[in-house]
Structures are given as structure tokens and as C-alpha cells.
Design a protein around this nucleic acid. Sequence first.
DNA 1: GGACCAATAT
DNA 2: TATATTGGTC
Length: 311
Amino acid sequence: MREEDSNWFARWEEELPSPEELMPLSQTLITPDLAIAFDIRNPNHQQRPPSQQAPPPPSSAAQPPSQPTSAEFAADSGDLGSGAAGDEPARTLKRPRLVWTPQLHKRFVDAVAHLGIKNAVPKTIMQLMSVDGLTRENVASHLQKYRLYLKRMQGLSGGGGGGAAGANGGAGGGASADPATDHLFASSPVPPHFLHPGRGNSEHFLPFVPVPALQHHHQQQQIVAAAVGHPHLQSQYHRQMGHFGSSPNGQFEHPFLARQAQQPIHRIGVGGAPPVHNQVPNSYVEDLESANGNGGNGGRKVLTLFPTGDD
DNA sequence: GGACCAATAT
DNA sequence: TATATTGGTC
């Protein structure tokens, strides 16, 4: 059991965002707040988040990705804002629901791990994650659920000890109430520390200090990874942009950092599904329904998919 | 006033 | 369901 500890720790170290990576606390120039305040409807449109972004207006003809900024606003206007008429809707804008993909979640867990379960609070986590478009509320909500999950894990493994979450693929046992949830959370290792609070010093985490935001400097470099999904269209990105996941060298994955890539990464390999339509705008991959009957899934188009291989 | 957390709503 | 929003509290 100890080994596991070391083992995961080693991996952890690798996977963990190194200072350099986190350094770029590059929140987009426009903080979510500002964005909202100024009616920048989608802070996401700013740059195509390789992850998933809400493709703006379905009806509006395809807009050539030329103007990165303000111009785009105009472009996508005419859609959801229509009702309000005008530029008033600034703060009343509603963001699309955020979809916590395994990658995003991992980032989240990394942040929490670094902070230590004790210091992990929404705001701090959010900052550490430095994901464009991610709000404190998003994190808070997810954190709430995550804590619940941890609690359950504690309870379940309480007696046996040891067997932490681990990617136990089959929740077949039945104990788990939420297979889906478990899977998502299981996609990321849970630091044992989280499961063993009170025991000994639970504070052996590096005080990783969140860099003092470098506000204006990296103007264009942002780790856009927010998985903002559109109610209708869900852009999906595939992990494995180029080399990571199973690198012989053990190169850890930087799902998020890697996201900077802005090259057309058409990765539509959804479970072997052929590239249905390749008319994808130009970059992000887009997945259409694939939610196979999940035992009675209404007719949801949104899919969080991710073959969840094992990782 | 801001942030956190738990509960509740969608 | 998963995520968003709300309300109470510090």
C-alpha cells in the first residue's frame, strides 16, 4: 500500500503542473467578469478553445475566423441576445453550461492536490487552473460535488483501507450510485491524502504559490480550455493531440496546456465513428450524438463522451 | 462586500 | 444527470 502511495505520488509529480506551466496565469485579458460586464457574450469565442467551445450562431452563416475580437461579437450577435435587444444584456448573459471533461477535471484535481484539500477553495482553485472562461461558480459547483465524491470514497474504502479510487472500471458492484459520476472522477486519481485527512499531518503539500497573476503581458496566450458547450452543439476535443497519453517516454500529458495548439486538429475518432461530416468549421472537433442509450437518456445531444478508455 | 458552503433549481 | 443558482453564514 505504501508503494501505491509512492507510485501515485511519482506519477503525480509528473503530471502535476509545474511552476512553469502554471506560471502563465494567463487568464485571458478579458476576465470573465469584464467580459460579461462588457457584453462580450462569449469570452470563449476569443480564441478557439481547443477544448470545446460553443460554436456561435447556428443560423448565422459560417463566419470566417478572421477577426478574433470585437468583430466577432458582432458576428455572433443576433443569436441568443436577440431577445434583449441591444447592448443591455451585459450582465444578464447566460453562459452555456460548462462541461467537465476528464481533462478539465484533471486540471481541477491537480489544482486541488497542490493546494491541499484544506486550502482548496473555489477561488484559489480557479486561479490555479487558469482556464479561460472558468468562473468561480463553476469551480465551486464542481468542488461541491467532488467533495461529496471524496466523502463517499472515504466511506466505502474506510474499512478496507488502501484501495483508493483507482480506476476500478466496473462499478458493477453497485455500491456506486452514479456510474457516470464515478467514472468522471475516477478518470483522475484521487490523492490518498484527500481520503485520509485527520491522519497524521495532512499538510505535506508544497505550498505551491500561485503566481501573482501577470496581468497584462501575455496578450494572446491563454490556456483556453474551458469546456463551454453550446446547448445544441458540443465541440469535443480529443485527448491525444499529438503525443501524450501513452508516450513511451512517459511524457505526461498536458491536456490543457497543450490546448494552445491552434492547428486544425480534427480528431473525430469517436469510438471508431467515421468522420461523419468533415465540414467542421475549422478546428475543433465536433461530436454529434453518441450518447448511446444510456439506459434511458432522453434525447440529449450533449455528450460528454470521451470513450473513457481507462486513463 | 466578498467568499465559502450547502441546498435547491433547472 | 450535471451543472447553475440561490441563500445563509463567516
